[in-house]
């Protein structure tokens, strides 16, 4: 069933891709092939392979339970927040929180998670910023 859904999504993707390709505005200065041909070929391959996947599905993959899916979704949200807040909070604070969260969810105890978070963040800051001179996001306190 998963493969059938996946195949149908692939077919829809290729149709959308074809429409987007046809909507490309051609410039008056164009080569013999133009900017649309290659995307259309790719869309064809995408569509055909998706169709085959939908018609001849593999055995069902092992999907995780709902709780695990929520776990992954929560991690994605945390990482998105991390990306958005990085320029606001600065590298060290934001990274300590994100790394600590991941460590906690992977099964560390609370204390261990806090230590992993701070250790990762300070460690990366020292190695990459202070030693190697990489520029990291600066927060309100300058780090």
């Amino acid at each position: 069933m998963s493969d059938r859904i996946f195949g149908v999504v692939g077919v829809l993707l290729s149709i959308g891709y074809i429409f987007a390709a046809l909507a490309i505005e051609e410039s008056f200065l164009s080569d013999a092939v133009g900017p649309k041909a290659f995307p259309l070929i790719i869309a064809g391959i995408l569509g055909i392979s998706s169709l085959v996947i939908a018609l001849r599905p593999d055995p069902e993959p092992h999907w995780p339970s709902l709780a695990r899916l929520v776990e992954i979704a929560a991690a994605v949200v945390v990482l998105i927040l991390y990306a958005e807040l990085l320029p606001v909070l600065g590298f060290v604070i934001a990274t300590a929180f994100a790394a600590g969260y991941l460590a906690w969810r992977l099964g560390s105890s609370a204390l261990e998670a806090v230590l992993t978070g701070i250790g990762t963040s300070v460690g990366i800051y020292v190695i990459f910023h202070l030693v190697l001179g990489l520029s990291l996001a600066r927060g309100p306190f300058g780090f």
Binding site: L79, I80, Y82, A83, E84, L86, P87, F91, T95, A98, A99, G100, L102, A103, L106, G107, S108, E112, T116, G117, T120, S121, G123, I124, F128, L134, S135, L136, A137
Partner: peptide, 28 residues
């Protein structure tokens, strides 16, 4: 243990990509 290793891997990935462009868009 990977509960310590994996957060480090994730954060180093972010540092690398942010270092190239400095843009939140790329991280997303």
């Amino acid at each position: 243990p990977s509960r310590i290793l994996m957060p480090i891997v994730a954060m180093v990935s972010f540092v690398g990509i942010y270092g190239i462009s400095g843009s939140t868009f790329d991280l997303l």
